[in-house]
Design a binder for these strands. Structure first.
Length: 627
RNA sequence: GCCCGGGUGGCGGAAUGGUAGACGCUGGGGACUUAAAAUCCCCUUUCCGUAAGGAAGUGCGGGUUCGAUCCCCGCCCCGGGCACCA
């Protein structure tokens, strides 16, 4: 600072290479130095600006500010450590207190936000990076025209001592030089996005915190070793309240029984109206509580307290439920070491993209904290992540009550059953895609399930007379069964449920034409179907006298020998165009195929009288003749 | 603005270098039925053609290849997520 008494002003930047281009500084309105920096002349203006900013919600602040930048000069100046330049210090709400140090050096020539701000308030701009002409939109000529902001890479100019250096080198050199003079240092900045950890609603874990007076807090703190170094306080109506966590012995704190858990309508948590639970006599030693309407119990441990009425958000639970489920009744730990080791972390996490930032970021963060504390044995919680798509409304846009395009699964279940709904959701398309709901499409999968049912049972519920204890499928269908076992297994592993179902449809269409249906084959089909349509499969499994439950029957294995075909269809191409095909034994040679091709009736018009210059034979697939 | 996806028949989609459109829906025709429902069979990318057959075709423009929905380069469009993060 120019005024040495104010001490140094700490800023964070990723662009030390542009230090010579700094023409002003900006502090967030909440920055602690704002008061001290502001000169008497600027004070009314600065205070008015800070008040205006404080009155805005975060959303307002961002949306408004994104359109037009605003700020106010403090009257103070800072000294640029690289060149001694005197630069003005401003306050502006485009700088956020929550990131870095809440203060920046502004380089309007090379940062779009600084550029906009500088243009609004006619602040100077000094270009210090010369981009290579081809990287500058509009060519080198545009660079000469003012005003112009350039955020790309290039070589340093107007930076005595560093001119001509590539920006990456300049970053390192300038950082090292400042570090040598004790004026700065290279650092890695981690940011964890802020996510509000409280809600004004009933359903959520209540915070195990009571609010007490300063004197009572000191009284309680004397007997507690687990309180934070600095007390958490909250001022309201001129009274400062102190947050006192419940002692371990009083945990868990449970929600009170209420008449109504609907929102209060006044912006307060529904818990704020549960007076007997809220206003209490609190025992600072045991955490015991009595309604404040009762007489104060005997003894110095009892103080007057008011409970915290906010509850925790859903993600308080969703960040660690996968650990708690391993050992849900354990009173000592989130889960026992043995359970944590035995179960490990989830193999696969399936979630929507809407969870991509907040939930996954925090769940991972919590897990890493628990790992550092030695609570969990793995550093990473979710080794494999899959973002499934959402089902859109019939109109192809996101389902929402306001749009009126919501499909209620209960109605579908009532009309078709849960298996049909489940199967249809999987059959709609790839798991990761966004797919519109189609009420007609559900008929198709429903028919498929009925078809399987009919293959097993008659209309009266007895066994289909074509089902036999002995006997065999035709060779083709038997091969298809084994192909299906393989494909469905592979598709499940790869989460391609839609194609697994399509393959089962092909198989069932073939079974329909079989004169004899060996019971063992049908049981295999039911095993394949069970993960997709569990109720239906279980019922048919029982009616066909399968052993135990289909869910514990295991997965059928396929016989690779049965997948080997005796014949194959080879496609004939002439100059890359498909002209015909033929079924041949797999053992056929290329020469034999070429001979067959040249006599093929559909190929004769295309090859007659021409010499074959080249043949490309892809074994088992096609023969391409170039003429 | 940044980051992810995606663009294929009337519709949802399949095919990841080798027959484009599997499977399902819709539509059309037929069988069974007194009739209907249910079920089964056939057809259903477009254009030309009575047909046999031919041509075009996977958002657009190039490229690689005997061969491209698939690989490469350059665009256009759509969807989602994030966003004053210095």
């Amino acid at each position: 600072m120019e005024n040495k008494a104010l001490g140094p002003l700490k800023i964070f930047t990723t662009r030390p290479d542009t230090l010579f281009g700094c023409t002003y500084m900006v502090l967030a309105p909440e920055h602690p130095l704002v008061g001290a920096l502001t000169t008497a002349g600027q004070r009314p203006e600065v205070e008015a600006y800070c008040r205006k900013t404080a009155a805005k919600s975060d959303v307002e602040r961002m949306s408004e500010a994104a359109k037009e930048k605003s700020g106010v000069f403090t009257g103070s100046h800072a000294i640029n450590p690289v060149n001694g330049a005197r630069v003005p210090i401003w306050i502006a709400d485009y700088v956020l207190m929550g990131y870095g140090t809440g203060a920046i050096m502004a380089v309007p020539a090379h940062d779009e936000r600084d550029f906009e701000f500088a243009r609004t308030y006619s602040l100077p701009m000094i270009p210090v990076i010369r981009g290579t002409p081809e990287k500058i939109h509009g060519g080198a000529g545009e660079f000469e025209r003012e005003p112009f902001v350039y955020t790309g890479d290039g070589k340093l100019i107007n930076s005595p001592g560093y001119n001509g250096l590539d920006w990456a080198d300049a970053k390192k050199r300038i950082t090292a030089d400042l570090a040598g003079r004790g004026l700065g240092k290279g650092t890695v900045n981690y940011k964890l996005r802020d996510w509000l950890f409280s809600r004004q609603r009933y359903w959520g874990e209540p915070f195990p915190v009571v609010w007490v007076s300063e004197a009572d807090y000191r009284h309680a703190a004397a007997g507690r070793a687990d309180l934070p170094a600095a007390p958490v306080t909250f001022a309201e109506h001129g009274v400062t309240r102190y947050a006192l966590p419940l002692p371990d012995a009083a945990l868990p704190l449970e929600l009170p029984e209420v008449q109504s858990y609907l929102p209060s309508g006044n912006g307060e948590s529904p818990l704020a109206s549960v007076t007997d639970w809220l206003e209490i006599w609190f025992n600072v030693g045991t955490g015991a509580a009595l309604p404040a309407t009762a007489p104060r119990p005997e003894g110095p441990a009892w103080v007057r307290a008011r409970r915290e009425t906010n509850t925790m958000p859903q993600w308080a639970g969703s960040c660690w439920y996968y650990l708690r489920y391993l050992d849900p009744r354990n009173p000592q730990a989130p889960a026992s070491d043995a359970a944590l080791k035995y179960w490990g972390v989830p193999d696969l996490y399936v979630g929507g993209a809407e969870h991509a930032v907040l939930h996954l970021l925090y769940a991972r963060f919590w897990h890493k904290v628990l790992f550092d504390l030695g609570v969990v044995p793995q550093a990473e919680p979710f080794p494999r992540l899959f973002h499934q798509g959402i089902i859109l409304g019939e109109d192809g846009v996101k389902m929402s009550k306001s749009r009126g395009n919501v499909v209620n699964p209960d109605d579908i279940i009532a009309a078709y059953g849960a298996d049909t709904l489940r199967l249809y959701l999987m059959f709609l398309g790839p798991l990761e895609a966004m797919k519109p709901w189609n009420p007609k499409g559900i008929e198709g999968v429903h028919r498929f399930l009925r078809k399987i049912w009919r293959e097993c049972l008659t209309e009266e519920g007895g066994r289909n007379p074509r089902v036999a204890e002995s006997g065999q499928l035709s060779a083709d269908t038997d091969k298809l069964l084994h192909e299906t076992i393989r494909k469905v297994g592979e598709d499940i592993e790869a989460l391609r449920f839609n194609t697994a179902i399509a393959q089962m449809m092909i198989l069932v269409n073939a079974l329909q034409k079989e004169p004899v249906l060996p019971r063992a084959s049908l049981l295999h089909v039911l095993q394949l179907l069970a993960p997709f349509a569990p109720h239906c499969s279980e019922e048919l499994w029982a009616r066909l006298d399968g052993t135990g439950s289909v869910t514990t029957a295991g997965w059928p294995s396929y016989d690779p020998a049965k997948l080997v075909a005796q014949t194959m269809t080879v496609v004939f191409q002439v100059n890359g165009k498909m002209r015909g095909d033929t079924v041949v034994p797999v053992s056929i040679t290329e020469a034999e195929l070429v001979a067959l091709a040249s006599q093929h009736p559909k190929l004769i018009p295309h090859v007659a009288g021409k010499t074959i210059k080249r043949c490309i034979y892809v074994k088992g697939k096609l023969l391409n003749l170039l003429v």
